[in-house]
Design a protein around this nucleic acid. Structure first.
Lengths: 156, 156
DNA sequence: CCCATGTGATTGATGCGTCATCCAAATTAC
DNA sequence: GTAATTTGGATGACGCATCAATCACATGGG
């Protein structure tokens, strides 16, 4: 039974990792609270509505939508149920597949996202992009894509 | 009534922003699922236990603990209640402040964190740090600290 | 034609995070 | 010394995310 030596994080690594985690928590929290306060939409609502807006006729198959926002179907199902109750989207049956369903954005949903989007974009700018140089932003994107790629290759 | 021109994100900005968000969601999700599977601890549990372990006698005042992990007191209260029910920590009354409370790590909690830590550190390495160069890591940390600093200055 | 398997989606249970409210003890003001 | 305020913390309600189980329809094989 060999004692495996644990390679703990150096002070620098630890700081970087904690800072990175903190950044997302704080920035994400702030942005979603802003969105909620200004538009009565959660970040999840926003993601769904943006996707529907980009789709032809503002309608999309259930699982396609789930894949677009990278959610499990269960989460999507619960969330769409709540959004439907609030009148932001509606469910529609699918003619060519008896078990399928479409999700359609409503007038109300469209109004909500159109009101929210400019404010949200402005918030992303003023809270994040404004404080990052273009070079840094490229580095961030490059690192993010690389790490996610490895995540995909190496399944759970 | 002036039409304010919305400064939408460029394709590059949008990509960087989405990649960044995706990185945290995916990496965070993966790490916490690993932690849960290997150690029956959530990321939140882990943070609490690490802090308690670092404190003298494994005990800390309630709000100090909350500040350390950067949570609201309400969240801490709920979470400590759940952790106490699982036997990971215990509450203790505070002699010199009648309303105060200490949170103390239990034997069970200590065992849990000591088992979890090496695995978690290894996961952070293999899923993240291994794919980031030291220079990139420094950039990340620098950007994160800068953005959070601005976040702090500019309250909600 | 019928069975097996796969796929699209729902449901219920449970734990988590936030908000608003509340309470008791401590501190300050008068 | 007592009233007002602040501080430490708990509580309940609600929305959200995950997991496991379920159900209905579809499709391929025999």
């Amino acid at each position: 039974m060999a004692e495996e030596a644990v390679r703990w994080l150096t002070a620098e690594e630890q700081h970087a990792w904690r800072s990175f985690v903190r950044l997302h928590e704080r920035l994400g929290g702030r942005l979603s609270r802003l969105l909620q306060a200004e538009s009565k939409l959660s970040a999840a609502d926003y993601a769904v509505l943006v996707n529907l807006t980009d789709a032809p006729d503002g309608r999309q198959r259930f699982l396609d939508l789930a894949r677009s926002v990278e959610w499990e179907k269960s989460r999507m199902s619960h969330h769409i149920a709540r959004m439907a109750k609030r009148g932001l989207v509606a469910r529609e049956e699918c003619p060519e597949d008896g078990r399928g369903a479409f999700v359609v954005i409503t007038e109300e949903g469209r109004a909500a996202i159109e009101a929210a989007a400019p404010l949200h974009v402005e918030a992303v700018r003023s809270l994040f992009l404004d404080h990052v140089t273009p070079a840094e932003l490229r580095t961030l994107a490059r690192v993010a894509d690389r790490v996610v790629e490895h995540l995909d290759e190496e399944p759970a």
